[in-house]
């Protein structure tokens, strides 16, 4: 019991030192800048407004909470900024500002602060808030535009059996949530995260690999062969890249052990594809990540590293 307690404390990235956590957060923000910038370029001032509203509301919520609960004000670690930014990038550019505010407050207060703050949440705040908004304001969260005209997202087109332009999807000139359209921008950021060693390669690798395998098998069964375009379209569309590199990789809400992370990533892949192919297209990545977060404690329990010497004296 006691060793468990000690073992636990080293699990999550608790704040050992303000500087290191904020350094990590800063890197994540930098990595997200290409996608954010492209989102603003693609969708205009409304996207910028949402990004600002979300980040500001998240910061304000955390500040007010800390003040009201008389805790140390830890805004400087910038985790609230990251949450706000990720949430904004997941929203349709036409979302009403007050809905974004409600979502941001939910993310910080309910999902993070109520459970004890940084490092203690079991669920990804931005992702949970996105799903919360999808349920609360279903209509508003499902209207997407491109060049100010209502337009179906590439994923919706794909589901309906239409054709999509892969190049445009790669560059990002399509409709969708603010930060999810440009595969290029997201990949640039991902490379930065790898260089800075912020994220573990296992999660995005196995997540995407699982998706590839699943879709290939699906193609083989339903279309009699692997359809490269279909596969590529799925990889580039929806929130997959945004989720795989930026949301599923959150240290706090994913399993710690390497094998745990692989299991987690595979589960995410399976769920995402199942939701996408057999369910509604909206939010499949987000819901998959939430369920992954729920299973993470159990996955950890199953894949926990044995304490030193434990195996030996059982023989």
């Amino acid at each position: 019991m006691d060793e468990q307690k000690i073992f636990r404390i080293s699990f999550f990235p608790h704040i050992r030192d303000k500087a290191s956590t904020s350094r990590i957060m800063l890197d994540v923000i930098i990595a997200l800048l290409p996608a954010a910038a492209f989102g603003v370029y693609n969708f205009g001032w409304r996207a910028l407004l949402l990004i600002l509203i979300c980040t500001a509301t998240c910061m304000l919520s955390e500040l007010l909470w800390d003040v009201c609960m008389r805790r140390r004000i830890m805004l400087r670690d910038m985790s609230a900024v990251v949450t706000g930014l990720i949430l904004a990038l997941n929203l349709p550019p036409t979302l009403d500002w007050w809905a974004a505010v409600i979502g941001s407050v939910f993310a910080i207060v309910v999902v993070k602060m109520l459970f004890g703050g940084l490092g203690q949440n079991f669920m990804n705040p931005a992702v949970a808030a996105k799903c919360f908004l999808m349920i609360s304001f279903a209509g508003r969260m499902n209207t997407f535009v491109f060049q100010n005209v209502a337009s179906a997202t590439p994923l919706e087109v794909l589901k309906a059996g239409g054709n999509v332009d892969l190049l445009q999807m790669f560059l990002g000139n399509t409709s969708g949530a603010i930060g999810e359209t440009s595969a290029l921008a997201l990949l640039i950021g991902a490379v930065y995260l790898f260089i800075r060693r912020i994220i573990d390669f296992r999660i995005p690798l196995f997540y995407i690999l699982t998706v590839v395998v699943y879709i290939s098998i699906y193609s083989m069964i339903t279309r009699g062969g692997i359809d490269g375009t279909f596969l590529a379209a799925h990889l580039l569309s929806g929130g997959l890249l945004l989720g795989a590199f930026y949301m599923a990789t959150d240290y706090v809400t994913s399993p710690v052990s390497p094998s745990g992370r692989i299991i987690y990533a595979v589960i995410l892949g399976l769920l995402t594809c199942t939701f996408r192919l057999f369910g509604s297209a909206a939010g499949s990545v987000a819901y998959a990540i939430l369920i992954g977060n729920l299973l993470a404690p159990l996955i950890e329990k199953v894949t926990r590293r044995k304490t030193f010497g434990k195996g030996a004296h059982l023989k």
Partner: peptide, 13 residues
């Protein structure tokens, strides 16, 4: 309206 309040998650919260 915040539809979630009328649904299961809202009830819990």
């Amino acid at each position: 309206t915040l539809s979630i309040a009328a649904l299961a998650p809202g009830a819990f919260f």
